[in-house]
Design a protein around this nucleic acid. Structure first.
Lengths: 267, 267
DNA sequence: TTGATTCATTTCATACAGTGAAACTATATT
DNA sequence: AATATAGTTTCACTGTATGAAATGAATCAA
């Protein structure tokens, strides 16, 4: 894709998701992200090529990351290291939203009998950060930390309600790049999936995964661009569209409660 | 090879676990680590003070980390961000040792009826990275990613068998700093806990947690300084010292199998 | 309210840390 | 053995990370 690393960084650009400040740190995080994307050990030269930086630079970055346990090395191949586990634990146990969400999801799940989940937007994807199972278990496994598209599934789409055309284009590009959507996917198709403007919930059936229905609402924050959503999900044989939509008021109330605990998140 | 941090930056002795190369990146990782240690949201000035860097620098680092989702901000306080979840997932699903360990631990657990665990050394602590429960469940919760001392518990001590006096001192300092040992703890006490030189397994009773017995062996690697160990654990009312020690041969075999898989991971 | 104190953020000149080309070594491939 | 590819070290240059100081925004004391 974008091999935008020209030595002249003249000015006009939208070359990457993140651009300028703290170059060496940004690059290090780029390497770290790339190691996750490629779901297998990576060689130094692969990483250097993919991230568009020189071999020495990539090597130095990897060494520091390794010193901190963020990266492990076996022979000549690198992968994510064990230090991410305590970090994840810290997030799950200390993040106010995640902590607050647990009892709320619990209540919604037991009132509706459906599986209740909390997602957070990260870049142009979403991540499952909390889940309480309902009566009918979902057959597919969907563990915490899974990256999912914004373009499919109720919990993704509801985060795109006020998205610009340009943003939709980026979402589409990211989803295709991540293999979450076919390469024939377009912003227009995505737009047609989104809920009517004005709707405060999204519905999906067989969209991200076949045999799965879900509804979702956004968790409002003070920025107007919500980055969290909560959803109710069920296998198709255990619930109907009507059953799910009947849960929307409950979801709304839950989102409202969580929203109070969410004071502005971006600068 | 990896002679670790051979960098004398002219500073006095113990200034930090990691010293010089890639200063900005090292500092960023320091901030990130500090955010985990302090198990609650941190203000900018706290972080700057604790990490010993200026406010502008700390702020710039936090902004970049936030851009990548590694850090979240609410109002003026910072915490670990959601991006660590996909990273942890990547580690758990792709790390060859963790993946290989699962069936091995499973087998050991079912053969002995005890809880089998895999730990990795990180700095002067150890981290639980995989666990298969036995028949008698451990009552205390011990989730993945928990940081535990090297100084207590069979799985910690076995990693210190060939440790120098200096290393023991650092282990003691780290354990006290983390609140895992009383401040009266000394390297001499630690040395007395360690298995006899030559022993290939460690035993502990009521050491790290009361009412818990465990044995552990190291997973050999080619460096001679093992950084992984596997253990068998049981609540005291469900097993005796003899029961646990009877599992040591099984553990040895399991460690051997894991050790082989550590080598053949080149591609 | 006012004024005092602490904290967050921006600006800016400087030094030094991060950079890639090139040289070199190790490892794979023929 | 010879060739090609990947990894690592060295080094000179410059671009960027840095903290002091100035500014702005909260928070606190009366």
């Amino acid at each position: 894709m974008t091999t935008a690393t020209s030595t002249h960084s003249g000015g006009s650009a939208e070359d990457g998701p993140k651009a300028s400040n703290m170059r060496s740190l940004s690059r290090a995080l780029e390497v770290f992200a790339e190691l996750q994307r490629a779901e297998r050990p990576q060689r130094l030269s692969d990483l250097a090529r993919t991230c568009g930086m020189s071999l020495p630079t990539t090597l130095r970055i990897l060494r520091v990351l390794q010193d901190f346990g963020m990266v492990s090395q076996t022979d000549k191949s690198y992968r994510i290291g064990p230090a991410v586990l305590p970090a994840a634990r810290s997030f799950l146990e200390n993040d106010p939203l995640v902590v607050a969400a647990r009892p709320v999801l619990q209540q919604v799940a037991s009132q509706t009998g459906l599986t209740a989940s909390l997602y957070t937007r990260l870049g142009f994807e979403r991540i499952l950060v909390a889940r309480v199972d309902g009566e009918a278990p979902l057959r597919y496994d969907l563990p915490l930390g899974k990256r999912l598209p914004l373009s499919a599934g109720a919990a993704g789409k509801i985060l795109l309600t006020s998205a610009s055309d340009d943003e939709l284009r980026q979402v589409v590009a990211a989803a295709i790049a991540a293999g979450q959507e076919k390469s024939t996917f377009t912003p227009e198709i995505l737009r047609s999936r989104l809920p009517e403007p004005g709707a405060d919930y999204a519905y999906s059936a067989d969209e991200r995964a076949t045999g799965v229905l879900s509804v979702a609402v956004a968790v409002p924050n003070r920025t107007g661009r919500p980055s969290e959503s909560i959803s109710l999900t069920s296998p198709v044989e255990a619930a109907s569209e009507a059953t799910l939509k009947a849960g929307v008021p409950e979801l709304r109330r839950a989102a409202g409660r969580l929203s109070e605990l969410l004071e502005g998140s971006v600068y």
